[in-house]
């Protein structure tokens, strides 16, 4: 009897922070990309510091939580591993020239061995084909869409990762001809 009385009095204290939190998140603004703190934030996939604004990417959850990546290939790899999460809201990559976020699905990508991206798959994003061509004139390389980027990352990274139990297989990244 006394115990339930005490409990009744304490319960609001316990619940208060939770209720507060729910109220707080409910008032949050619409889900949109969060600015990356270059030099401070860590890549969610490869754990490296994010330092290059030409490649810093983001995955947003419906809750507004943002996962940040140092390269487009890391975003793609993370997405491939987590795409069954029903909470995923959107994917964002930076436009190579303006460094502003654009949706990953609408961006066009340049895959050029002479334009190395932070994690070695050499993928850069552009908001339009015209912009991309400006850069491609100098560096060359092939043009990809988002689906093809995913395919590339799957092939170059994820499928090879599966082989790690194999002791002596040949290393999986093609070296440039010397």
């Amino acid at each position: 009897m006394i115990k339930t009385q005490i409990l009744k009095k304490i319960l609001p204290l316990l619940v208060a922070p939770v209720v507060f939190l729910i109220g707080f998140t409910a008032c949050e603004k619409a889900v949109q990309p969060v600015p990356i703190n270059y030099g401070q934030d860590e890549c969610e996939y490869c754990r490296m510091k994010i330092t290059d604004p030409r490649y810093g990417s983001e995955l947003l959850l419906k809750t507004g939580k943002a996962y940040k990546f140092d390269s487009i290939e890391c975003l793609a790899a993370y997405y491939l591993k987590n795409k069954n999460n029903p909470n995923i809201h959107s994917l964002w990559v930076p436009d190579f020239l303006t460094k502003k976020f654009i949706p990953a699905e609408t961006a066009v990508y340049l895959h050029s061995k002479d334009l190395p991206s932070p994690m070695g798959l050499n993928i850069s994003a552009f908001k339009s084909k015209e912009e991309l061509e400006k850069v491609r004139q100098k560096y060359g390389g092939e043009v990809l869409n988002w689906e093809q980027v995913l395919q590339l990352v799957k092939k170059e990274w994820l499928e090879k990762e599966g082989q790690k139990t194999d002791h002596h297989h040949h290393h999986h990244h093609k070296d440039m001809n010397m």
């Binding site: 703190n37 270059y38 604004p53």
Partner: peptide, 18 residues
């Protein structure tokens, strides 16, 4: 750096590639 845009465009000291 935190929360503000800082200069991050620097290159590496000794850089070896392929």
């Amino acid at each position: 750096a935190f929360g503000t845009q800082i200069e991050t465009n620097f290159g590496n000291g000794i850089h070896l590639w392929h």
